[in-house]
């Protein structure tokens, strides 16, 4: 579970997050959506401790995010852009992360096998296509069976088959009781995966609630339309 209260962040004069209060529950997939620059990535990075908050608190499974890095052992993160040291191989970057984490628990190699990465294991990472690097990134995020998964545009750049493998894996982890945060620009993907929807606009939470009830309330079948309705409703 992740609890965020009064989270504010400013870059220079630009207020990126203007006081976010949010609770993300275990066993749920929460989709964070919003137009470019609405603060999605900054919010995710604040949870990961990559961005320091100006004010407000973040608790990850009851541990306060402020300097101590141990809570990160419970998080699997898949960044928006996957770039690795150029001359290391696929096998080496995975070993590196395993080496660093030193966890006793068995690793989850499902995605590694499903994406057939053994074929690419000895290739330097610089020679891989964007999609393949994205697969490596997904494997790393799911590797340690973390309690929390943070996935920033996980299927961007993946071919349809790999994309559906990853989506099935996300749903399986939800059933296993993981807390999952997801950002995506593909609305159909959010409809297929998410339970909760957080809509960010200019650094504030514009909507936070069940995805299904939102669709029901707005009377729309498509998420794009429903969100458009919400915005229209607020403007009117």
């Amino acid at each position: 579970m992740i609890q965020i209260s009064g989270l504010k962040k400013q870059f220079g004069k630009l207020e990126v997050l203007k006081g976010i209060d949010l609770t993300l529950n275990t066993g749920n997939v929460t989709a964070i959506v919003g137009h470019n620059g609405s603060g999605k990535t900054t919010l995710i990075k604040a949870i990961l401790g990559l961005v320091g908050a100006d004010s407000g608190k973040i608790f990850v499974n009851d541990t306060r995010v402020n300097g101590d890095v141990r809570y990160k052992a419970e998080i699997g993160y898949m960044p928006q852009i996957a770039r690795f040291p150029e001359n290391l191989t696929v096998a080496e970057i995975i070993t590196l992360i395993k080496d660093l984490r030193e966890e006793e628990s068995a690793t989850d190699d499902f995605l590694y096998d499903a994406f057939d990465l053994a074929k690419e294991a000895d290739k330097p990472l610089r020679t891989l296509s964007g999609g393949t690097r994205q697969k490596v990134s997904a494997v790393i995020a799911f590797l340690f069976q973390p309690k929390i998964l943070i996935l920033d545009e996980p299927t961007a750049g993946l071919d349809p088959l790999s994309s559906s493998i990853l989506q099935d894996k996300i749903l399986e982890e939800r059933r296993n009781g993981k807390t999952i945060i997801l950002t995506s620009h593909i609305m159909s993907e959010i409809e297929a995966l998410a339970d909760e929807l957080v809509y960010l606009q200019d650094g504030e939470i514009f909507y936070n609630g069940h995805l299904k009830s939102m669709l029901r309330n707005t009377g729309e079948k498509k998420l794009e339309r429903a969100i458009a309705r919400l915005i229209e409703g607020a403007a009117a």
């Binding site: 990559l50 890095v69 141990r70 809570y71 770039r83 690795f84 660093l100 990134s137």
Partner: peptide, 16 residues
């Protein structure tokens, strides 16, 4: 050039 790699490493339980 290591920017994304640094972000990945910092999302691990590793001191900055």
């Amino acid at each position: 050039n290591s920017r994304e790699y640094i972000e990945l490493m910092l999302s691990q339980p590793l001191k900055r």
